[in-house]
Design a protein around this nucleic acid. Structure first.
Lengths: 214, 214
DNA sequence: TTGCGCTCGACTGCATGCAATGTATACGTT
DNA sequence: AACGTATACATTGCATGCAGTCGAGCGCAA
């Protein structure tokens, strides 16, 4: 059985409620056909997750502005650099089964193919699956959980401006560089590759506004 | 008014419930003199925070084992490297008021003095305040929030083995190196100093067991 | 005595009802 | 006509009651 929290989270992440949307508990009760108690609980947990924000009246889907989005990407870069480094280190220690690496390559290929073919939603999904698998290889469950949260936040806030990446070839190139660094057990290079890749993605955001004052 | 979630969190972080302790909602109801509804909600949020863990029956305070503790420290190292780098970068851009830096130095001194004088609890508190201020200077609220969560987890799981640091002088030396790197606007050095400092703290843990199998 | 099954109890999850609070609107006053 | 105030409504937070579920302890049989 799926919890109300999971269902609501899925709704938000999948874009059923656009960022900035104001929601009341009552609305969700009829939408999910449950009582207010589990809805209340779910909303508060999602607030801890940074997906919704408590307003004076009700809650609203968080929309990260330019600065907050840049902050999130920098965190993601730091964490993915860590997971990539750990994954490469495990490879160096001979702790990674070969199947895990071939799977990584397959995920990268799937991400590249779908993106190139124009299926943006599937491209994002496969891209995330690729990055997520790196974190799985790192064998650090807490880092994986944190990255999942950050990814959800970013997905919600960038869905509206989801456009065809102007540089699919570059993205795949960066993925390959990361795969190679991990496969050949070079932690430092893996970390750098992951960090640079994420920061490049940030730089490619349509409305950076990475500056300061509003 | 303080929410039940905040009160319960404070109880756990302050060590009122030792790690591994089994708790039922009913117990907390009488302890906090509230109904089960807010208690339930608080427990689930704390589970998201990684402070409690849902058991088959009730919940228990999480106790990170050697591997999980090492994982947490590595995440902390990565995030603190990021915040230190950002803080140094802001200093380079002239965005840091001088008062912020003097405050940083004062916090480091307080941490050093209390630790050296043998007041372990106060030492931990001041030490955390010092590190937290670096994250504040970084001006990345999400990173600050993540670090707060990690710190709470680490505090709960290391309270039992809280012993006098065998190397107070080294700790202060590392703090000074970090302060200098930030004050003089050297992001790369600040990042390295922060990372090394945290990883050194990990290495100083009494029961590392950073290896693999149990 | 030991192993298995059953029944009782405890605990969690959800729905509903009530009280408190803040907001928006409408009315009266200046 | 504009502003201040009061009232009514919407909405949140909490307490309580009920049903379902899982575990523990006890009894019975081999």
């Amino acid at each position: 059985m799926e919890s109300t929290y999971d269902r609501l989270r899925e709704l938000i992440v999948s874009g059923a409620y656009p960022p900035g949307q104001r929601i009341t508990e009552q609305d969700l009760c009829v939408r999910l056909t449950v009582s207010r108690t589990p809805v209340r609980e779910a909303l508060h947990r999602l607030e801890s997750d940074g997906l919704v924000r408590g307003e004076r009246r009700g809650v609203s889907i968080v929309e990260l502005d330019g600065k907050a989005l840049a902050d999130a990407y920098r965190i993601r870069a730091a964490l993915e650099a860590l997971t990539a480094e750990l994954a490469a280190h495990r490879q160096l220690a001979g702790e990674l089964p070969p199947a895990a690496l071939t799977r990584l390559a397959r995920l990268a290929e799937a991400a590249d193919q779908t993106t190139t073919s124009g299926d943006l939603a599937a491209g994002v999904r496969h891209n995330r699956a690729f990055h997520r698998h790196v974190a799985v290889l790192a064998d650090n469950p807490q880092a994986l959980a944190m990255l999942d949260r950050i990814w959800d936040q970013i997905i919600v806030s960038t869905r509206a401006s989801l456009a065809a990446p102007a540089r699919p070839a570059t993205v795949d190139e960066e993925h390959q560089r990361l795969i190679t660094a991990i496969s050949e057990g070079r932690p430092a290079e893996a970390a750098t590759a992951a960090r640079d890749h994420v920061l490049a993605t940030l730089a490619a955001q349509p409305d950076p506004d990475t500056g300061g004052a509003p």
